[in-house]
C-alpha cells in the first residue's frame, strides 16, 4: 500500500496542477455561489446545485478520466517497468485521479455555503450528503473510465464509449423508465421502478438526495413508496449497500483488467 500511496501522491499532484482541474473547481464554485446568491434560500440553491452535480460529475469524471489515462499510457508503461506490482500501480493511479477530482468538487460546492453560513440547521447535513453523493459518483465513474481505457486501445473508440456510457446512465435510462411508466401506467409499477432506480448509480444518488429535501410528495404515489422504502432503516441501508457495490464492482473489475492487460 505504501508504494500505491507514492504513485497516488505524484499522480495526484500532477492532476491537481492541471488547468482542467482548476476550471472544474472554479465552475462549481461559481455555480454554488451564483445559486446561493439568486435562489433566495439555501435549500432551493442546494436543490438546483444537486441537478448540476448529478448531471456534470459523471460526464466530466468519465471523459476526463478516459482522456487522462490514454495520455498517461506511455508513462504507465514506464512505471510498470519499475519493480512495482500491478495492483499497487492501479490503486495509485485510481486514487491519484479520484482524490483530486473529489477535492475539487467538494471545495467548489461547499465553500460558498460555508462562507455564507447555514440559515437552516438541516442545510449542513443536506450539503454533506450532496458532497458525499458527488464523491461516490466520482469514484464510480473514474473506475468506469479505467475499464473503458483498458478495454479499447483506440482513443477515439474509448472516448465514444465514455460519452455513450454517460448518455445511457444519465439520459437514456431515465427516458426508458418514463416510457415504461407511461406505457404500463395501469399496473402497480412502484416496485419495478424502485428496482430500476437502484440499478443506476445516478438515479440512486438522485433519489437519496431528493428524499433529503422532503419533496417526495411531488413524486406522487411512487414518491410515497420511495419514502417508505428509503425512509425505513432497512431501505436506507440497502440503498447505501447498493451504492457501495456500485463503487466496489467497477474498481474490482478495473483492477482485474489492469492486472491482465498486455501493454
Amino acid at each position: 500500500m505504501k508504494t500505491a500511496m507514492k504513485v497516488a501522491r505524484y499522480e495526484g499532484s500532477n492532476v491537481l496542477r492541471s488547468r482542467w482541474m482548476l476550471v472544474y473547481t472554479l465552475f462549481f464554485l461559481a455555480a454554488s455561489y451564483g445559486l446561493l446568491r439568486f435562489a433566495g434560500s439555501g435549500t432551493k440553491a442546494l436543490l438546483s446545485l444537486m441537478s448540476v452535480v448529478l448531471f456534470l460529475v459523471p460526464l466530466v469524471t468519465v471523459v476526463y478520466g478516459t482522456v487522462y489515462l490514454y495520455g498517461a499510457r506511455e508513462f504507465t508503461e514506464l512505471l510498470l517497468a519499475q519493480p512495482v506490482k500491478r495492483w499497487q500501480l492501479y490503486t495509485g493511479l485510481y486514487l491519484g485521479l479520484t482524490v483530486p477530482l473529489s477535492l475539487g468538487l467538494a471545495a467548489g460546492v461547499s465553500l460558498p455555503f460555508v462562507l455564507n453560513g447555514f440559515d437552516e440547521p438541516a442545510l449542513a447535513g443536506t450539503l454533506a450528503v450532496l458532497v458525499l453523493a458527488g464523491v461516490a459518483l466520482t469514484s464510480v465513474f473514474t473506475a468506469l473510465a479505467f475499464l473503458i481505457a483498458l478495454r479499447y486501445d483506440d482513443r477515439l473508440r474509448g472516448l465514444g464509449a465514455a460519452i455513450g456510457l454517460w448518455l445511457v446512465l444519465s439520459l437514456v435510462y431515465d427516458g426508458l423508465v418514463l416510457f415504461l411508466i407511461a406505457t404500463f401506467g395501469d399496473y402497480p409499477l412502484e416496485r419495478a421502478v424502485l428496482a430500476l432506480t437502484l440499478a443506476n448509480p445516478v438515479d440512486l444518488a438522485r433519489v437519496m438526495l431528493l428524499l433529503r429535501f422532503d419533496i417526495s410528495a411531488l413524486m406522487g404515489y411512487t414518491g410515497a413508496v420511495f419514502q417508505r422504502f428509503f425512509g425505513g432503516a432497512s431501505g436506507a441501508a440497502l440503498a447505501a449497500v447498493i451504492l457501495g457495490i456500485w463503487m466496489a464492482a467497477p474498481i474490482a473489475l478495473g483492477q482485474r483488467a489492469f492486472r491482465r492487460k498486455d501493454f
Binding site: 505524484y10 492532476v15 496542477r17 492541471s18 506511455e74 508503461e77
Partner: peptide, 14 residues
C-alpha cells in the same frame, strides 16, 4: 533494469 521507452511522454505538470 533501466528502461528507456521509445516516446518520452510524462505527466505534463510534473
Amino acid at each position: 533494469i533501466g528502461y528507456m521507452p521509445q516516446i518520452g511522454r510524462f505527466p505534463e505538470n510534473l
